[in-house]
Simulated assay, not measured.
Amino acid sequence: MEKPTKKGVAPPMAWRTRLSILAAGCLTDATCRADGTINRRLLNFLDPHVPPSAAPRNGVASRDVVVDPAIPLRARLFYPCPSGGGGGTGDATKPLPVVVFFHGGGFAFLSAASRAYDAACRRIARYAGAAVLSVDYRRSPEHRYPTPYDDGLAALRFLDDRLAGLIAIQPFFGGEERTPAELRLVGAPIVSVPRTDWLWRAFLPPGADRTHEAAHAASPAGAAGIDSPAFPPATVVIGGYDPLQDWQRRYCETLRGKGKAVRVLDYPDAIHAFYIFPEFAEARDLMLRIKDIVAGGGGEH
């Protein structure tokens, strides 16, 4: 009788992709200091900023805007060009829906001008035929909780419009316990328990642990406000090779427990942050799903 094959910690992938993912992990590890700070000079060298482009690139132009000059808080605005093809409507007079994008990086790394997120936002704008406002929120450990959240709220107020929907792509949650996925996927790409532990220590208020409301979204404090009528229908994206997936599923259960509409997009063979690697089939599928969600106005599930 054959023994069942043990599932690894990453799906099969091309060697170029594997090298890119390995480099991303090395970037974070190389710039984290033991004292809880980040070597920003080295990080800026390893993650050089991509300038905005008034001339369309892949059918999408971009420019940097000031959201709040008092902070100062900036964002990068991406918008599809009618002649660019792709996912746009081709009608320059038609108002565009707006996707407000908060980039990944554990609240500490990367930016709206990072190459990976500049390219990802261009793809979203092109596929969805939408403007994308990528918020360049302030990062920890220099700016701990609640500063990045405050910057996100400032960006929403800048638009001064209602939220039609929420797309949470592998959201960053955690807790003091180690979940089955965290224990099973030791050594998974991009995300690991030592990395996330370091990020939470850098982000949370001094003295707080991972039961804090900003980390533990399924806790009563973390769920505060979800039952507001203003909280929109949610789509939560989960990857089968993401160590954070159990926390993300608990978040979905919390939303449902509050009577909220929740759609789960489950990608069994996806790693954390898969959507910034366009060579993955799941990345293209997600772009098409985002296009459908935006076209439906964020709508009920």
Rank of each mutant, 00 (worst) to 15 (best):
K6R: 13
M13N: 07
M13C: 08
R16K: 14
R18N: 13
G25W: 03
C26G: 10
L27R: 11
T31M: 03
D35G: 05
I38N: 08
L42K: 07
L43K: 12
D47Q: 11
R57N: 09
V60Q: 01
R63K: 13
V65K: 07
V67H: 09
D68N: 13
A70C: 10
A70S: 15
R76F: 02
G84V: 01
G86Y: 02
G88C: 10
D91F: 00
L96V: 06
F102C: 03
F107Y: 15
Y117M: 08
Y117D: 08
R122L: 08
R123V: 04
V132S: 03
V135R: 01
D136L: 06
R144T: 09
T147F: 02
F158G: 01
D160I: 04
A168E: 07
Q170I: 01
Q170C: 05
P180A: 00
P180R: 02
L183K: 15
R184D: 10
G187Q: 05
I190R: 10
V193R: 14
R195E: 10
D197H: 12
L199H: 08
L199V: 04
R201L: 11
A202C: 12
F203Q: 07
H216P: 00
A218D: 14
A221V: 02
G222L: 02
A223D: 02
A224T: 12
I226D: 09
S228W: 00
I238A: 07
Y241V: 03
D242V: 06
Q248F: 07
R250N: 07
C252H: 03
E253W: 06
A261P: 06
V264L: 14
P268S: 05
A273R: 12
F274I: 08
F274R: 10
F277R: 11
E282A: 15
R284S: 14
I293P: 00
V294T: 00
G296D: 03
E300P: 07
